[in-house]
Structures are given as C-alpha cells and as structure tokens.
Design a binder for these strands. Structure first.
Lengths: 113, 113
DNA sequence: CCCGCATGCAATCGTTGAGTTGCAGATGGA
DNA sequence: TCCATCTGCAACTCAACGATTGCATGCGGG
C-alpha cells in the first residue's frame, strides 16, 4: 500500500484522469457516457479507467448491459494521510536543521569534506 | 494552487523522484552528492530537481560553490489536505447514492434512456 | 596560479504513455 | 427477430519523458 505511492500519484498526474474522476465523483457513469461528455474517444477513456481501477481510485460494476464506474474516496483519503505523514516528517527534520543553525557553536564548514 | 493538482501529482508519480525526495527529506544535499548515492547521472538528477522545484516540493540554496536542495514538507501537507477534502466529497456522494438505493421507491430503470 | 570539483546547457536515444481508428462479440429493447 | 448500443481487444501514430553523453563555465583550495 505504502509502496504503491508513486503509482497512485502517477495515476493522479494526468489532467484527463482528474476530469474523469471529477465526473465519477458526482455520480456513477459508464465509459460511453463519459465519452459523450469528454473530448476524447471511449477507448481512451477505457484505458484511463483501467489505470484508475488498478490503483483503487475507481470501482466498476456491471449494470445490465453497461458497466458503470465510481470514484472511491477512501483510497484518496488513505493517500492523503500518507502524504501528510511524510510531509510532517520533512518539516520535523527542517526544525532540527533550523535549531542547529541558530544554536551558537562550531561552524559546520567543511563537515562533508 | 488547486489547479496545479495534476502537476503536483505528476511530479510525485516517478519512483526516482521519490528516492530523491526521501534523501532530501533526511537532510540537504547537492545534485552531485545525490548522484554519488543514486544509480543515475547528475544531469538526470538535475532535471528531476527542476521538476520538483517548479511544483514547490524542493527548495534550493546556493551554499558556497555548490547548490544544496531541500524537501519542503509544507507543500506536501497542502496537497494532502486538498486530496483529503476531495476524497471526503466523493464519500459523501457515495452515501447519498446508497441512501437512495436502499430507500423504497420507483426503480430508476431507464432513467438515462 | 592551477587543479579539481560542482554546476549549467545542448543534443541525442529509447521507452513509455495518451490518443486514435478499426473490428468483433454480446446484450437489451422495439 | 432485428437493430442499436455498449463493451473489449488489437494495431498504430505521435509527443513527452527519463536518461545519457559531451562540453563549457565558475568557484575554492592547495
């Protein structure tokens, strides 16, 4: 789950997929229905949906003849939690650095050499 | 800021950039220092750093002869907040759908046709 | 002063990814 | 039954991206 961070972000890195996700966040839609609204072909949308489904951001359900797709908020929430945790750890490290910089003491000049 | 969501996620969508960010989260490093640790060339790292700097995930500082880079946790935290908000909105919509599905009433059969 | 190291820019290469078209199968409704 | 529509798979094009090499520059230290 944690290891899938780059894949999850990559899936969210495409503007068209955000467009799709936004529509699927308002309500369940089929690939054909999305193709009627978006300026790209149904096949292209199908590929995007496959990417989104593989990372768990979209779930699909057979509904009669057609397949409707749905945006999954839980996965996005989990991602948000991970990113927040990581961001906080970076900030903590920043605090340590600032603290060391402002504390009087020997200059770290040439430490790496 | 909100409009830069796909760009921000795209920057986080590459495993190598996560590798770089992880190192820069532990402490400030120069491009050459990163190149000594990572299995790719300094130039490749430079390009990644440029991408990360453009979306605000990394800040750079001239330190004598070299330029050290630093991971910025605040930007990641802001992104996390956005994603969490969006995810929650999707879940809310889901609740509405379930509610409607479990409430007795006229079948929505053929509504879209 | 001169050497070494760190940086920046440019050209190139292979791969991945987004998007398209075409076609065949399956299914629901008139 | 017949038709319209929705789906899935395959092949193809084109641009973007990750990564490389090569070269020129600039600054610090011995």
């Amino acid at each position: 789950m944690t290891a899938a961070l780059p894949a999850l972000c990559a899936a969210l890195g495409d503007p068209t997929r955000w467009e799709i996700l936004t529509r699927l966040g308002e309500g369940p839609l089929s690939a054909s229905a999305l193709a009627r609204v978006l300026p790209i072909s149904r096949q292209a949308i199908g590929k995007h949906l496959e990417v989104l489904r593989e990372v768990g951001l979209v779930e699909s359900e057979q509904r009669g003849r057609e397949v409707v797709h749905l945006a999954v908020g839980a996965r996005l929430g989990a991602l948000a939690g991970e990113l927040d945790r990581i961001g906080r750890s970076w900030e903590t490290r920043l605090l340590r650095v600032k603290e060391a910089a402002e504390r009087p003491g020997p200059h770290p000049r040439g430490v790496t050499g």
